[in-house]
Design a protein around this nucleic acid. Sequence first.
DNA 1: GCAAGGTC
Length: 691
Amino acid sequence: MRRILIIAEKPSAAKKIAYALSDKGVRIVKVGKTPIYATTFKGQQIYVAYAMGHLYNIVQKSGGWIFPVYNIKWERTSPKDRSYNERIKETIQAIAKIAREVDEIVVACDYDIEGSLIGYNVVKYACGEKYFKKSSRMIFSTLTRNELRKAFDRRLKTLDWPVIEAGKMRHEIDWIFGINLSRALTLSLRRVGDRERILSIGRVQGPTLKLLAEREIDINTHVPLPYWKARAIVEINGVKYVAEYAGGNIESEEKALEIKKIRDKYATVKKIERKVTKERPPPPFNLGELQREAYRIYRISPGKTLEISEKLYLQALISYPRTGSEQIPDSIDVKGIIEKLGEMREYRDLVQKIFEHSKRPKPVKGKGTDPAHPAIHPTGEKVNIKLSGNDRKIYDLIVRRFLASCYRSMTKSETRALLDIEGHLFVLKGVEIIDHGWLKIYPFKKVTEKPFPRIVEGMKLKVIRVEVEEKYTKPKPRYNVRSLLKKMENLGLGTKATRAEIIEILFSRRYLENPNNIEVTDLGMKVSEILSKICPEILSVELTRNVEQIIDELKSEYLTSEYRKVIVANTVLGLYSVLSKMKKNEINIGQSLVGKDFKPHVEGKPIGRCPVCGNQLLIVRSKKTKKRFIVCYGRTTGECDVTQPLPQKGRIRPLHETCKYCGYPLLACVSKGKEWVFCTNIRCPGKRKNV
DNA sequence: GCAAGGTC
């Protein structure tokens, strides 16, 4: 019997694959603590194991927190890593064990560059390179039974090497740019005395910061220009109505004055138009839209929404939330899910409405697609644990959106009357909802109704007055987290799973403040300013575009590892001179970053003037090693970098005298009852001559 | 300690 190990990207996918490829049911076998699905399919023994996203990551081969650094390698995600998960090690061991007993390894991770790379790394490092020739690749875009079976039968006989290389390339370029520039910024700050703060920048952080910085400049340099808005107040059967000037905003003062001069007491109804429009229900959520709506309606942050969705997913209440899709494939039992939702008291009425509308409800399809997952939808599972606060709100939002997407359109009628007053045209508008449709189920969209009077063409209406209001142009509004996420999505910055997190990083670096009305801090502006001079690539979306373009062009052809290395080297070529410039200008950059508000803070005992720069020399203790040493106060502003070691034992007493050989202060040290005098300069020319 | 990308 042929034995096959299938590697999925994550537990949920592994389960679906196992059940799709099973003739007689699925068993779970434990290898150590790791569960693995076992099944038989068309006379083959199948094991399905899963990774948990990337199990391997790029690390620096050797050396410390320095730059430039280009020596990198792939390594199992370590406990030091932020993304470490304690099950990683066991998972790898389990996969390695089963791999030894099978005839073939099938990579069945998501079909994108990260998925191909995840699978490749598992084969290479968990199993060993010799398994490459036994490895194949299953390609599918949804986790439905039919597609999975087809994908298994028609799998590629080898790994998809060009896609793997594309994935490696993306990781390497991001790492080299991000780590080096982040270190260069952080170490500049350290040079001028701020030893706490970490700065960062990267392919996604950079353009996002720049976007916000440009908006900040726009707002601060906006020159308000005058414009006018005109409206006529008319009276019909004793009721007042407002008709807006038909030409929109008036930019010429002359025109505004002309309208102001209207004295006619009557308006003539020139034309009436009535339009009935239908608005289709919104499609079910993808992650981005869920995050935006949760923020708009409940002010729940995108990060929080993701966290809650993940929890709901683990409780089996909703489908996989990290999806870009706004579509529910036909293979999902929509009717069954809705029936189950109907068993919950709070949704009974809504569900009844849906079935009155259609016996076979079908969610409308949105534009978003995703290679691996359908749109977010409830599973219909009973809510066992009582959901609290925000959890409840998010769950309810998902349920309502899903139900609404199966319901009928909203219908409204819009009426417009064109009024002529002394040759100037005004518009009288009315809006009436004829049928709320899906709005009854998803009531979070505001449609304001406006009554329309009973009038006919040719009628004369009484004009109470014509108002002309002077206004001034305003700058574009500041971003909030929601609009920023949307903008990033449009620009192709980050992915659905990382965008919210990256915005949070920008806040934690203190580049940004006030999430509801985002302002760029002085520090954020400085980082953007400095990089736009020294390394504009990191602030431009072009880096993302280039990487994408290279990947798109090459993954369909034969992108070899040699070729990848050449591309990475070419892409990071310019970085070398950027980094050496940053190193040379560390102090300038640091000073510019800390700005005028920065107050260097060093506590220590003064012992006399520094012979190099004239500032005070201080005795301080290292936070890290607890050892005492001498530092020049000038180091806090970057103008000096003198430090000197001290004996660690004994009581030290300043003598307020300077060394006759080098000008450094002299100190006395008392230890074990003896006192001796020494020069604080470790390289004092007088050291050998006994001071 | 620093990126961006998967995932728990």
